[in-house]
Design a protein around this nucleic acid. Sequence first.
RNA 1: GCUGGGGUAGUUCAGUUGGUUAGAACGCCUGGUUGUGGACCAGGAGGUCGGCAGUUCGAGUCUGCCCCCCAGUACCA
Length: 475
Amino acid sequence: MAKKKTDKVRPQVLKGFRDYPPPEQIARETMIGNVRSAVELMGFLPLQTASLELAETLLGSHYTDDNLAELFGFVGPDDVNMALRYELTVSLARYVAANPNLALPFRRYQYGNVWRVDKPGPGRYREFMQFDIDIVGTSNILADAEIIAAMVAVFDGLGINNYKVKYSSRKIMNGLIKFAGIDDNKAADVMRVVDKLNKQGKDAVIAELGAGRTDRSGDKIKGVGLTDSQIAEIEKFLDSVSGSGNSLETAESLLGSVQVSVEGINDLKAIESHLSSMNIDKNKTEIDLTIVRGLAYYTGPVFETVLLDLPEFGSVFSGGRYDNLVSRFVGKQIPGTGASIGVDRLLAALIELKALKLEQSVSKVLVTVMDPERLPDYLKMLHQLREAGIPSEIFVGDSKNITKQVKYADKVGIPFVLIVGSNEFEAGQVTIKNLKAGKEKAKETSEREEWLKAEEIQVTISADKMLEYLKGELG
RNA sequence: GCUGGGGUAGUUCAGUUGGUUAGAACGCCUGGUUGUGGACCAGGAGGUCGGCAGUUCGAGUCUGCCCCCCAGUACCA
């Protein structure tokens, strides 16, 4: 370095990474707890897998430069080529393949961070959390119905009411692609483009299936290059099944001669019937044949969700059946089906819906240290509070001055402050100050003395009534 | 990756045709107030003007390259 500019390091997070401040993290963990309860009630088992995997595990036969660029990969100790996982499903497949004694079907849930070298966007980071539920080792369509039932249970468990779990089957669209005479190697592209229907609209999809289009910023997007008649076939299908009426019947009349499509239709009928037997509210699920999902590996039923009050959030919980994933590791096919929650997107939605409120602090009471000589007494009170199950802390800062201590409580959002000085000790009393009430009172008065000691914001009561009083106030 | 818009205190921003010591508001810190968070009063800290190079007597301001942020879009195994 030519000249020493500064010896201080910039407190910067990496591009695409972020910190979760306590209020957000508290809410996140509450939410995750609720999701866990919901899926454990349905028999899903927790699994945790390694964050780092062999590069070849993650990429397999898709080991191309393009994919490599999306991985946080590096050469680690012992010259091993490794990378951070970019999703949880591949690790599940590896785990299942590595444990031949595992009881199948295996229903597991897993939540954890995944990493992708993506361009960060709104609500989009290079490190983010997914919460997955999957059932591996069965091709029985009942498993797909269970996944949908779990999705419903999760939303209900989170206190979200106005939502819809939509499902369809890849097989129907696969049949349509065959029926329209579209080359097999374009099938994945067609799915990818049709998947944009909700977000970009029909015109954009049709343009992109053909010659391509130009987006709002003026950027050119390459098309799939289908012929006009092929596009017309797809358009006709999408139009007919998105109208009102029974879309399965419509699909049957259009594609009744295509075997794959008929299989898909029958799968959906079976799922519908299972859900009905499970007493799943009919308003909470819906067959929507325009749903295809963008990813290439889905082979059967696919699931998506929409929060009806926040459609702009997109699908916060989605997935589908994948029958070939595990075959990469073992010779035989092990089919699976599952769905994944974008944890932070769902959290943002919950906050937006006010189904979860942000808490600043976990402590409910701050025990101030008014007289350092009486510290043992303060610690005794602290112990009492904690024994009684009231989350509490004692002021551990250097300052002895009470102003600082109350200010601290205010700043970190602790609602009650316990003040016990010589007056209280002599009378066998404690003073409990309610900071939230104080905030309200501050709007009424600018008189300092009146505000500080107003009855509504603080009480001085007998020390043995302390717990009872606080329990009452904290509900 | 592509297209467009940006980068001046912690935050939001102002900064004249290039001109001396780069400002405001809010926030933060200290004190008034070691028995009380707000309000109020007094004081204070905080900036390599995103980076590097160039033009110029002189650059926050002009030029080039790079970096980063924001928005849209593509890819997402």
